[in-house]
């Protein structure tokens, strides 16, 4: 498409450039590279090389970090935020800025385990060796609205 006479011309108004196709190709290739990296990183157990207990968090961290970088690239290049006005940049950031605010809910679930009150939050971190015996798998689940309130949790067997 470089043969188009307009391809190198900068549009004056609003600061919107018309970019070379190569920019889009490079961006897409980078993203594809990161995609392969994510899959590859998931095959390798980084964490347990470092810590036997909580090592898998390293893998999680890597996966999320790669996703963040990919997002960053998409937002900057495909969504043209790199060339946007400061107002556009502000609003592009706003949502991503507020995600941490939303995630502050985590503090509650983190702190609960340090309470004098019995806690809910725990990592279940076990070796699953034998199949679990299923006493009552939810066959008898009561649909909302079908039956009200009584015996949601089965009574004792005695």
């Amino acid at each position: 498409m470089a043969k188009s006479p307009l391809s190198a011309v900068h549009d004056d108004h609003g600061g919107h450039h018309i970019h070379n196709n190569s920019m889009y190709v490079k961006t897409a290739l980078t993203l594809a590279g990161f995609m392969i990296l994510t899959i590859a990183a998931a095959q390798i157990d980084f964490g347990h090389m470092i810590s036997k207990q909580y090592g898998y968090w390293i893998n999680n961290l890597i996966a999320v970090l790669i996703a963040v970088v990919k997002t960053y690239i998409v937002v900057l290049y495909f969504m043209h935020v790199k060339w946007a006005s400061s107002l556009g940049k502000l609003f592009a950031l706003l949502g991503f800025f507020f995600i941490p605010v939303l995630f502050s809910v985590w503090t509650d679930f983190y702190f609960r385990q340090h309470e004098p009150v019995a806690h809910w939050y725990n990592n279940d971190y076990v070796e699953s060796a034998t199949p679990r015996i299923i006493g009552a798998t939810d066959g008898a689940k009561i649909a909302p609205g079908e039956e009200n309130t009584q015996n949601r949790i089965p009574k004792s067997v005695w």
Partner: peptide, 19 residues
């Protein structure tokens, strides 16, 4: 199955729905 004491296997059934 979640917090199995060291040295023991996962053999105990869950009493989740029975009690």
């Amino acid at each position: 199955t979640e917090k199995v004491t060291k040295g023991y296997g996962v053999t105990m059934p869950s009493y989740d729905k029975t009690f």
